[in-house]
Design a protein around this nucleic acid. Structure first.
Lengths: 140, 140
DNA sequence: TATACCGGTATGAAATTGACACCAGGTTGC
DNA sequence: GCAACCTGGTGTCAATTTCATACCGGTATA
C-alpha cells in the first residue's frame, strides 16, 4: 500500500480513497449509516436489523464515532440504553451511501442474472464467448 | 425503497444491500471501478495504481467480470496483454462510486481531524462528552 | 547467461471476522 | 429463593480473507 513516489494525481486520489474507504467504506459502516439515516437506533436494534455480529457492530460503531460520523448517547439506566445517531458529517455521508444503496437494490437482479449466465458458460460448454458477450449490460 | 412503516422491508433492504455490497461494495471493487472510469486499463497498470496485491486484483477483477461490471479482453501476444474496461452496467455503478470518491476526497481532512481530537479526548481525558460534540461536523 | 516483463496461480503467514461465552445488575417467571 | 432473561458490551478461539512472496511460460534486452 505504500508506493514509490508517483507524481500522478490519479494515484494520489486512489491512495486517499483507499485510506478513507478502508475506514468508512466497508460494508458494515455503509449499512450502519444507511440504517441510522432513518433516525436514532439502539445497539441491539442495529444488531438485529443488520445481522451483524456483536463484536463487529461495537467495533464499527466505535470507529464511526471516532471518525465523527455518528454520535453515541449512553443512558445509565438498568438495563443500559445506548443510542446512536448520525452527526452532521454523517448526514453528508448519507448521500453517497443512499446512492450506493439505491444502485444495489436497483441492479440486484441484473447482477444475479449475470452471475448465473457466467456460471453456465463456465460449467456448460467450453470457450463459447458467451461469458463476455452475454453478461451484457443492464437489461434491468 | 422507502418504507418507513415496515421494518421487515427495511430489514429486507439491508439484507439485499449486504449481499450486493459484499460483492461489489468492498474497497477494491470500488477503486477498480473508479480507476477504470477513465478508460481501459491493463492488469499491472491497475496493480501499480491501486497498490493491491496480485492475488486480490485478479480475484476482484474476476468477480467484477462475473457480475458483469467489467469486460476482460485478452490478447495472445508475447508478453500477454489483458485489458479491462467498464461495461454499460459498470458505468451505471460508476455514478455512486464517483459520489463516494468525491465524498472521501472532500472529507478526508475533516475525518482526520476528528480522529485526532478523539484520540486526544481519550488520552488527555477530561470531557468525554466533548469528543462527540467537538468532532464538529462538516464545515465544508 | 542473467534479467526483466506480463498476467496470472500456489503457498504459508498475518490480519480480519464470526460464533459463542462471559460480565453486571436489575426484572420477570416459577 | 433461584434460574433465566434483558442490556451493551468484551474476550476467546476458529474460520475466513488478505497479503507478501515465489514461481510459471515465452520473449526481448543487456
Amino acid at each position: 500500500m505504500d508506493h514509490p513516489d508517483c507524481p500522478d494525481q490519479r494515484h494520489q486520489n486512489c491512495r486517499v480513497m483507499n485510506e478513507v474507504l478502508t475506514r468508512v467504506g466497508d460494508r458494515w459502516s455503509v449499512q450502519i449509516v444507511y440504517a441510522l439515516s432513518r433516525g436514532t437506533m439502539r445497539f441491539n436494534e442495529l444488531k438485529r436489523e443488520l445481522g451483524i455480529s456483536q463484536r463487529m457492530l461495537s467495533e464499527s460503531l466505535r470507529d464511526l464515532e471516532r471518525d465523527g460520523l455518528i454520535a453515541r448517547r449512553h443512558f445509565a439506566t438498568i438495563p443500559p440504553r445506548v443510542e446512536y445517531e448520525l452527526t452532521d458529517l454523517g448526514r453528508t455521508f448519507q448521500e453517497p451511501v443512499m446512492a450506493l444503496a439505491k444502485w444495489a437494490l436497483d441492479h440486484q437482479t441484473c447482477i444475479e442474472a449475470n452471475r448465473r449466465s457466467f456460471a453456465e458458460a463456465e460449467t456448460g460448454h467450453g470457450a463459447e464467448a458467451l461469458a463476455g458477450e452475454q453478461a451484457s449490460p443492464n437489461r434491468a
